[in-house]
Amino acid sequence: MSLPEHANFLLIDGVLNKRKLNDLHQYEASMEVCLLYGGTRWEPLQDLGPILMKPSTPSSLITDWFSDPAAQKYSTVFSSAKFLNQVTDHLRPFICPPNALDGSGLLRFSDPLVAHYWLSSLSAEQRDQLLGPIDHWWVPLPTHSWEPPAEIAWQIFSRVNPAPSSSPVHASLDHAQLAALDKAHRWKFEEDAYQWLAERDEQLFAGMDSQSISDWLKHTIDSGLEWGLVGEKALIIWAETFADLGHDFTTRPNGPYLTWLNHNPDNACLVPVLRIKAFDHFRRSHKDTAHD
């Protein structure tokens, strides 16, 4: 993978970073480091927040960091002619921006997955304001673990108009950006569900190509949501049941689910989340009788 030309800042997600922060001291003489949570109410968690780094002299910092392919999962790079403290001051209002639903929450924009969906949802005008002193922001496109290995592709977000000399940062998330963050959450949940299900049954996805796996996960999760399930735990139980009993388990005559309901009619009145959990408990306690 060749690094983007002129990239001189490295942004690391502290949650996803598997290296210890002390590892950065090998570059101490040639870099500046800022923990973006420092000086904020999240300072006690600053090691888990965004870590902004900039070589202060010619350095191999960025190329060395990206020599580890795993770093592409928790790092992005960008270019700016400004000092590190100026870029830091610009980014900090985005740590916990208000949103269109009159709420607020931590925005992990240092996570490449979040950055990809968040930045992709912006209009040109919003992107110019958001980037501010940043000229170009390179984000590796997310790839699922079941997809064929390939060289990481980059998505480039560039400021079109010159950055104003000074302007207030109006950090907020509109409905389009909230929807984009929901997509990022769904992407991550599909990845987590795949990892869990593949570990649970290594034969489940055997023989499927990457598109078939994607389709299976999408159909499984969508059907659970349509059935009325909420919450990741309930959806994982739903996916496990699909894997064991088939996609038609709720409608198959004389199948384990309808047989269970016939013998336990009160369970039909349970809300979907409680019903799937009750059926899962039944299956686990009656393994010999809960299969076709």
Rank of each mutant, 00 (worst) to 15 (best):
P272D: 07
P98G: 08
D209S: 08
R108T: 01
L16E: 08
L245Q: 13
G228S: 07
N17E: 04
E240D: 09
L217C: 09
L229K: 03
E43H: 07
A81H: 09
L36V: 05
D128K: 06
N264W: 02
G105V: 01
R92H: 02
D182R: 13
D47F: 07
C34W: 03
E240A: 03
D222K: 15
P253K: 14
F279A: 04
A124Y: 00
H175C: 09
L130P: 00
L35Q: 14
I156L: 11
A239I: 00
A176F: 08
H281E: 14
L122C: 12
W238G: 09
R283K: 07
V230M: 06
S104H: 13
L3S: 04
R275F: 01
Y117V: 01
H286W: 02
H175F: 14
P133I: 03
F109D: 04
K73I: 01
Y37K: 10
A81V: 02
G38T: 08
T250P: 10
W260T: 04
F279D: 07
E191K: 03
R200A: 15
S60K: 08
G132C: 06
S56D: 15
W238M: 05
G105D: 07
N262T: 07
K277H: 09
L11A: 11
W238F: 03
D23I: 00
R19M: 06
H263T: 10
F66L: 15
R92K: 15
A184Q: 08
E28R: 13
I221F: 04
S167V: 07
M208A: 12
S60C: 04
P148Q: 13
G103K: 11
V169C: 10
Q126R: 12
T289D: 07
H286M: 03
F205H: 11
P58R: 11
P265A: 07
A234T: 04
N8Q: 05
T251D: 14
P133H: 05
K82D: 15
W187V: 03
N99D: 15
V160D: 08
D215G: 05
A124E: 12
G14I: 03
H170G: 01
Q26K: 09
L48N: 13
D266I: 02
H263C: 08
I62V: 10
R108Q: 11
L119N: 01
T220K: 06
D68W: 02
Q72I: 05
A81P: 01
C34S: 12
V33L: 15
A243I: 01
S30Y: 00
L131V: 02
N267A: 14
L131N: 02
P112Q: 11
L245W: 07
L36W: 04
W216F: 14
D102H: 11
L21A: 12
L11K: 08
L101M: 12
D192T: 13
L141V: 14
T40R: 12
L35C: 08
R284N: 11
L130A: 14
P148E: 12
G132A: 03
G246C: 06
D248Q: 10
